[in-house]
Each structure stands twice: as structure tokens, then as C-alpha cells.
């Protein structure tokens, strides 16, 4: 039942090439997925600002348009306001836990160095071991890096909190049951005989196309993320044949083969959204001109727009909060490893110190 624990071991150069190649791949995937997500946010923003699709569904002028109802149910189903409030409340504690681990780690380095300096002052050149300050340089640099990361995280927390404060009122309204939601939306006399007009059908068709583009996007994102490949053999072969690894060439070549088609499909997806959104904006102008514009109608439209964008903000805020929670938990693990490194070296230095002290006292 022998399994060779060294089976996966590779030369150093291959190991480094693999980690660079992996981060190259990670960057490409993030860029592709990021551009798709950005396009979805843009699309949602434009539609919300045009009060679409709600304006097309809002025939009676006093009931809750279907798309707003669906958005309300979606938010409630994902836990509504309470779920994000709870995550927001947890952020400061997660931050504090990370700070404490970091501060504690750096403190034990400082304390040991202080003692080392005191003894060096007392025994001067007889205290002939390397000063702790020199030994701890790289650990302190690493600690400094963690501090920067935590400061950036604090800014991110602030962004999320502000986003939450801006939208929580509307999100709360969206979370209300249908009757209360309906009562909260100002009513306006029904949209005249818009139902039959051609521009309403054109707009509806355009919105269906946008939905299809978004659905394709989700499939595309899944496929992009599912791509896996291993460069080990290629790097090993290169090392054997040429004695060196041209990581960049090999990785870029592989990434082109694996992701070339996806990159094109992403660009095509973004282009078609751009075209359709432009058409929607033109049709909407025609639609808006047809609709009667009086105070009640525009007041109602304002609230419907806010409700639609409250849904989009809810999705964004909860994804930010999930990202933040994961960030802090991942960082805690990394900081605990850092803490172990600090306590290990300090333990070793203390043991060494005691021995040196004994020798000096004897001599």
C-alpha cells in the first residue's frame, strides 16, 4: 500500500513557474468575470433609472408592478434587511480579532528585543549574539504589510456601511408585505391606452433580449470558472529540454488556447448588451413622450425607480459583506500562522538567551 509522498515534488523552478502561472490565470479569470459582472450592474442601473420593466407593467397605476414584486420576494427570500444588518454588525468584531492577533505577534517581538538590548547594555561586547532587531526585520516587514491590508479593509468596511446607510430605507420598504408595499407607492391615474402601442411591445422585446444576454452571461461565467489545467508537465519538459522555463510564453500560450474562445464570447456578450441598451434608451424616449407626465405619475415613477435600485443595491451590499466576512476569516488563518512564526523565533531566542546568561555568569 505504498504511496510515494514525494510523487508531487517538482524542481524549485517548476514550483515557482506554477505559482506565477496560476496567478496569471487567476488575473485573467477575474478580468473576464469582472467585466461580465460590471456589465450586469450597468444594465441593472440603466433599467432602474428608466423605471423599466416596471413602467411597462404599471397599467392600473395603483398596484405593485410585477417586476417590483419579484424583486421584493427575492430580497425577502435572501434574508432581507436583517441578514445584512447582522453581517454589518459582525465586521468590527472580525476586524478587531485580526488586529489583536497582529498586535500580539509584534508585541512579543518587541518585548524580546527590549530584553536582548538590556542584556547587551549590561554585558556589552560579551553579549556576542546577533541583535534581535536584525533578526526580526523580515517578520516586522510582513507585519507592516498586514497592517496596510487591514487599513484597506477598514476603508472597504466604510464603503459598505455607507452603501447600506444610503439604501437601507428603500430596502426596508422593499421587504414589506405586498399590501404595505402597495400602500407606500404613490398612485397615479392609469397610463392611458399605452397597452396596445407599438413602442411598449418593442421595449418588452428588447428587455427579453437583455434577460437572455444576462442568462448567457451566467452560463459563460460558470464555464470560465470551470476551466482547469495543469502546467506541471509542460514546465518539466521545458526544463529538461532547454534547461530553463519560459513561463510567460508557455502560460500565455496555454491561456490563449483555453480561454481564447471565452474571451471572444465575453466581448460579444458585452457588445450585444451595449447595442440593446442603446435601443432601449431610444425606445424609452418615445415611450416617455407618449405617457402622460403629471406630478403623481412622476412621483410614482421616482419611488418605483428607487425600489428597483434598492434591490440591486441589496444584491451588491450582501455580496460585499460575504466577501468581507470571507476576507477577515481567511486573514485570521494567515495571521495565526504569522503569530506562530513570531512565537517560535522568540521561544528560540529566549532559550538561547538563558544559555548565554548561564555561561556569562559562570565565567
Amino acid at each position: 500500500k505504498f504511496s510515494d509522498i514525494f510523487e508531487k515534488m517538482v524542481p524549485m523552478l517548476v514550483q515557482q513557474s506554477l505559482s506565477i502561472s496560476n496567478s496569471r490565470k487567476g488575473e485573467l479569470v477575474n478580468r473576464l468575470v469582472g467585466s461580465l459582472r460590471e456589465a450586469t450592474n450597468l444594465c441593472n442601473g440603466v433599467l432602474a433609472s428608466l423605471n423599466l420593466p416596471a413602467a411597462l407593467e404599471d397599467l392600473s397605476g395603483d398596484s405593485v408592478p410585477q417586476s417590483i414584486l419579484e424583486k421584493s420576494r427575492a430580497v425577502i427570500q435572501q434574508g432581507g434587511l436583517n441578514s445584512i444588518e447582522q453581517l454589518i454588525k459582525d465586521l468590527p468584531e472580525l476586524l478587531l480579532r485580526n488586529r489583536e492577533i497582529l498586535d500580539e505577534s509584534l508585541k512579543i517581538l518587541n518585548d524580546e528585543e527590549t530584553t536582548d538590548n538590556e542584556l547587551r547594555a549590561k554585558f556589552s561586547q560579551r553579549w556576542n549574539r546577533t541583535p534581535s532587531g536584525d533578526l526580526y526585520k523580515s517578520l516586522r516587514a510582513e507585519g507592516g504589510n498586514f497592517r496596510n491590508i487591514l487599513d484597506k479593509a477598514v476603508n472597504a468596511d466604510q464603503v459598505v456601511k455607507e452603501r447600506y446607510n444610503t439604501h437601507c430605507e428603500m430596502i426596508a420598504l422593499l421587504c414589506k408585505p405586498e399590501d404595505q408595499l402597495c400602500a407606500a407607492i404613490p398612485s397615479a391615474n392609469p397610463a392611458k391606452t399605452l397597452q396596445g402601442s407599438e413602442v411598449v411591445n418593442v421595449l418588452k422585446a428588447q428587455l427579453v433580449q437583455l434577460d437572455e444576454i444576462k442568462r448567457d452571461r451566467e452560463v459563460l461565467e460558470g464555464e470560465i470558472k470551470a476551466v482547469t489545467f495543469d502546467m506541471t508537465t509542460k514546465f518539466l519538459t521545458a526544463l529538461v529540454q532547454d534547461g530553463a522555463i519560459n513561463e510567460e510564453a508557455l502560460s500565455t500560450g496555454e491561456l490563449d488556447t483555453r480561454y481564447g474562445a471565452y474571451t471572444q464570447r465575453v466581448q460579444q456578450n458585452l457588445r450585444s448588451q451595449e447595442e440593446i441598451l442603446a435601443q432601449v434608451q431610444t425606445s424609452h424616449q418615445e415611450f416617455a413622450a407618449l405617457k402622460q407626465s403629471n406630478a403623481e405619475a412622476s412621483h410614482r415613477e421616482e419611488v418605483l425607480k428607487k425600489l428597483a435600485s434598492a434591490h440591486d443595491s441589496y444584491i451588491e451590499i450582501s455580496s460585499n459583506l460575504k466577501e468581507g466576512t470571507k476576507f477577515y476569516n481567511d486573514l485570521t488563518e494567515i495571521l495565526l500562522k504569522f503569530q506562530n512564526k513570531c512565537s517560535d523565533i522568540v521561544f528560540a531566542r529566549k532559550t538561547e538567551r538563558e544559555e548565554l546568561l548561564k555561561d556569562l555568569q559562570q565565567s
Binding site: 496567478s23 491590508i149 484597506k152 479593509a153 464603503v159 476576507f327 494567515i334
Partner: peptide, 16 residues
């Protein structure tokens, strides 16, 4: 993404 990436921190510095 909003939060800093921890990717390169997760890679244990083999050289250390």
C-alpha cells in the same frame, strides 16, 4: 472586488 486580495499571502514563502 472591494477587499484586498490575500492570494499571494496564502502562498507559503518556500524560500523562507
Amino acid at each position: 472586488s472591494l477587499y484586498p486580495s490575500l492570494e499571494d499571502l496564502k502562498v507559503d514563502k518556500v524560500m523562507r
